[in-house]
Design a protein around this nucleic acid. Structure first.
Lengths: 225, 225
DNA sequence: ACAAATATAATAGTAAAACTATCAATTAAG
DNA sequence: CTTAATTGATAGTTTTACTATTATATTTGT
């Protein structure tokens, strides 16, 4: 995807940020440093004070970009799903066979990100780690309905909708496409986390990527048999 | 299950609590009040100070039972999985046909809890809401490996192992039983949450319990076709 | 090139959260 | 009925999550 690298940017909804971190040097440092620090110490221990000292700025300056650390996390997760939709489009483009399209789409959302290259401010490998470990915190709370109204989850919904449509291409009468897609996406995240920390909750077979294989097979069986 | 109600207690590992909340009136108030309050205001806004004032006690007294609010949540979630294992045993008891056993087991972990009756201190309906909305917070953090060493997740692992074994009864050569079980359990929780707050991420069909149906069908297809 | 606008840094301060410590008053146990 | 354990009342500490103010850079328009 490097050929687009410098020309494409992923847009995140206004309302998530106070001032766009795309627009300045400090904004870029907040994103890069934020990703590094959240990945390193986890979201609970992460504070704007620590981030400020890491990037050589101040708490107050960071607060001009994001209302709270929650908003920064929302920004990062939204960016991730915006990026995933872009990958989804590229990787299913011109693929005619619906089953092939579906398998490719599932690969995009279940595979482990290996290289960080495409976008300047964002280390995609670390960002995926963050999404896996922290993203449920953006909606598993009492502010979810308010945040939803403000469009904080549209990118995620769009990805789910896009894959759901491919599922319906394969099986027009399948009743639970969204349920199946979110089961797969959230499931794949969980399995990657469990494989590292709670291996008894998963089945790690070495060599192949068993997570991708498992979910591809699961979906195909569910909708074609 | 009422017939056992007063005689059975669910045991939670030492190390989760400083003093067992089973052992005293205050302990009971902490559990009951804790469940009510976490369910009401969510885990992020929940504090021992608020709980103390709700149950007419003090912060310091609650800290004698639990090191932190994190430990109280761990206690509740562990209790829940201990209780689920107990339900699993009862509901699959004397059922000979493996597929029937499997379907019953899946029903236990995917159905919505409707009545609160069995255990004195615990409102199981509210507790399930808490497990759905908050339980990922007990392992999705940087302390997970330390907590795992201390046995904070054994009850959950036991439930997963028990259902995995039933899956292997149905299909001896199935390679991913744990992966499938955790996909179903976490998936069912997510779907119930999405149905309430982010309906575009699921498919709510009224009338029947589509979540139970969906996951039962998914598992049977996956391991028998 | 220079004024005006804007962005950032430095500093200070507040309210609440997440504990810890102390000691007196209850309550329970032998 | 004495002693030990439990709870309540109070107070204090550190950290987090902000907000406010002013000074100093840096950009931008002309």
């Amino acid at each position: 995807m490097q050929e687009f690298g410098s020309k494409i940017t992923i847009k995140v909804n206004e309302g998530v940020y106070l001032k766009s971190p795309d627009s300045s040097v400090l904004g870029g440092k907040i994103l890069r440093g934020g990703i590094d620090l959240i990945d390193e110490i986890g979201f609970e221990d992460f504070t704007f004070k620590k981030l400020a000292s890491k990037i050589g700025s101040t708490e107050a300056s960071i607060y001009r970009y994001f209302e709270s650390k929650h908003h920064l996390l929302v920004y990062l997760v939204l960016w991730y799903w915006g990026w995933q939709e872009y990958r989804l489009i590229l990787r299913t483009m011109n693929v005619e066979d619906p089953i092939d399209r579906l398998k490719r789409a599932l690969l995009v959302v279940t595979e482990e990100i290996q290289e960080d290259s495409t976008f300047l401010q964002i280390n995609e490998v670390k960002l995926q780690q963050i999404v896996i470990a922290e993203s449920s915190k953006i909606y598993m709370n009492k502010k979810v309905d308010k945040d939803n109204e403000q469009g904080f989850f549209v990118q995620y919904k769009d990805v789910v909708e896009r894959i759901s449509k491919i599922i319906l291409e394969v099986n027009t009468s399948f009743k639970y496409p969204h349920m199946l897609v979110t089961t797969v996406i959230e499931g794949a995240h969980h399995q990657r986390f469990f494989a590292k920390h709670l291996p008894k909750l998963t089945d790690c077979l070495d060599g192949e990527d068993s997570i991708v294989k498992f979910y591809q097979e699961l979906v195909i069986k569910e909708i074609t048999k």
